[in-house]
Design a protein around this nucleic acid. Structure first.
Length: 429
RNA sequence: GCGGUAUUGGUGAAGUGGUUAACACAUCGGUUUGUGGAUCCGACACGCGUGGGUUCGAUUCCCACAUACCGCCCCA
């Protein structure tokens, strides 16, 4: 085997690609209902776009970015996530301008890149669907975004879901909490795991997220962000919860969810699914939150934002393990069997006439015998098989067989070419 | 970046330091030179991930590399 795909990438082959189409089509439909419009931004950006927004100490920036110098000596990064590029585009194209309805609601779907060790559902090039909404501080928007994420997952046939909710408050809340957390953890420094020792000063919130059992014990008694919220932040969070209640959306406030990226504040959430496909217990499938201040961070005006991202490779694993039925978008209406070299032209004409009429039609291209052609028709699941031989050629007819019932009729070929639908109605319904 | 397991045809796989690398499915052909889902017969690895080494001889032993999967880290 001479060439292999790069580590951590995947070929999505025919058959498999249909599942992706289903997911993408479903998402597009739903986003249209919520009035989110598609935005397509480059797959690579200046390094700074991500280092600025994700946080210099975040794992993404420090070790997972695919970055390189291009021939013009520009420091380029293949996007590791969707938000930063969208925010950059939002600013660069001045979508904050008065001529745009607020909030500006956009979605994207496409590949992201992270340089890390591949595992099931985790690749170096992976795909995400995400949404971003700019220009409203309203808790209703927080609630709507969460509701939409759930709605989307339900449309994908995933039901056993849990919403974990938390708030990081505004800058003031977060700074106060950060300080309190450090004060609490400092005396226990020696007991912390090595990783958490690292995190303590760089990003103490991440200690909360530690998987280390001992860390978790310590963290259990740590101060909680909820006790450090400013009145405004508290009010915002309360409102979000009330709104979710009013929609009948169940959630659990989990003060230990933090998110890997530095730009979040106020509401953050993770939607988790309970499936063995992604490991034991509940695993995060979709995550997002508010990022007021991110637009400014990238040089834009003071505009708030909120969004979520959804990993499609994981989603697919989940859907497959849940036994979700993917619709067959590739139904074959008719297969044309030509018998003998002389029928080649007539076969082509019939095939093209039916296709022009909107039918999905295939034929034999290998000069195979009738039996083999019928076998193909059967294998491909053709609803009808149309046979043309010397007899039909002479009579200007075509032989139509309904595969499921085995019913056969000989019909003038022009009728079939002009209106195959009518022929079906008349002879087979 | 660290640790573990694996890598045989289109697919699932068996197997051995030494003449022809099982078996099954799929595919193709024949049985039926104009008809599907059945039966029977036949064909189908210039070759056992790549590169080295050990050996009289390696797909089988050793080393390196690549990739996949699992765990850690982190996360989608």
């Amino acid at each position: 085997m001479r060439y292999q795909k790069p580590k951590g990438t995947a070929d999505i082959l025919p058959g498999e690609s249909q599942k992706w189409q289903f997911i993408e089509d479903t998402a597009r439909m739903l986003f249209a209902d919520y009035r989110y419009q598609e935005i397509r931004t480059p797959m690579f950006e200046s390094y700074e776009v991500f280092s600025r927004t994700s946080g210099d100490t975040s794992d993404i920036v420090t070790k997972e970015m695919y970055d390189f110098k291009d021939k013009g000596d520009r420091h380029i990064t293949l996007r590791p996530e969707g938000t930063a590029g969208v925010v950059r585009a939002f600013i660069e194209n001045k979508l904050y301008g008065p001529e745009h309805q607020k909030p500006v609601k956009v979605f994207y779907m496409g590949p992201m890149f992270r340089y890390e060790r591949p595992q099931s559902g985790r690749q170096r090039q992976f795909n995400q669907i995400g949404v971003e909404a700019f220009g409203s501080d309203s808790p209703s928007l927080d609630a709507e975004v969460i509701a939409m994420a759930l709605d989307l997952l339900n449309h994908f046939g995933i039901s056993d879901l849990k919403v974990a909710l938390n708030t990081l408050g505004d800058t003031e809340s977060r700074d106060a909490y950060r300080k309190a957390l450090i004060d609490y953890l400092e005396p226990h420094f020696d007991e912390l795991s090595d990783d958490s020792k690292q995190r303590l000063h760089k990003n103490p919130l991440r200690v909360l997220d530690s998987k280390d059992a001992n860390d978790q014990k310590l963290v259990a008694d740590a101060p909680r962000i909820l006790d450090y919220l400013t009145p405004t932040s508290q009010e915002h969070f309360d409102k979000v919860k009330t709104l979710l209640d009013s929609l009948g959306i169940k959630y659990e406030v989990d003060t230990e969810i933090v998110r890997g990226l530095d730009y979040y504040n106020h509401t953050i959430f993770e939607i988790m699914a309970n499936s063995k496909a992604l490991g034991s217990g509940y695993t995060t499938i979709c995550a997002g939150g508010r990022y007021n201040g991110l637009v400014e961070e990238l040089g834009g005006p003071e505009v708030s934002g909120i969004g979520f991202g959804l990993g499609l490779e994981r989603l697919l694993l989940l859907m497959e393990s849940e036994g979700v039925q993917f619709p067959d978008l590739n139904q074959l209406d008719a297969y044309v069997v030509g018998i003998g070299d002389d029928t080649d032209v007539a076969s082509l004409q019939v095939v093209q006439a039916l296709r022009a009429d909107g039918f999905s039609v295939d034929r034999d291209y290998l000069d195979r015998k009738p039996k083999a052609q019928f076998k193909s028709a059967d294998k491909l699941g053709a609803e009808y098989t149309l046979t043309i031989g010397d007899q039909e050629l002479a009579d200007h007819t075509i032989h139509v067989k309904q595969m499921q019932t085995g019913k056969e009729e000989t019909i003038p070929v022009d009728d079939v070419k002009n209106d195959f639908g009518k022929v079906i109605d008349k002879h087979f319904n």
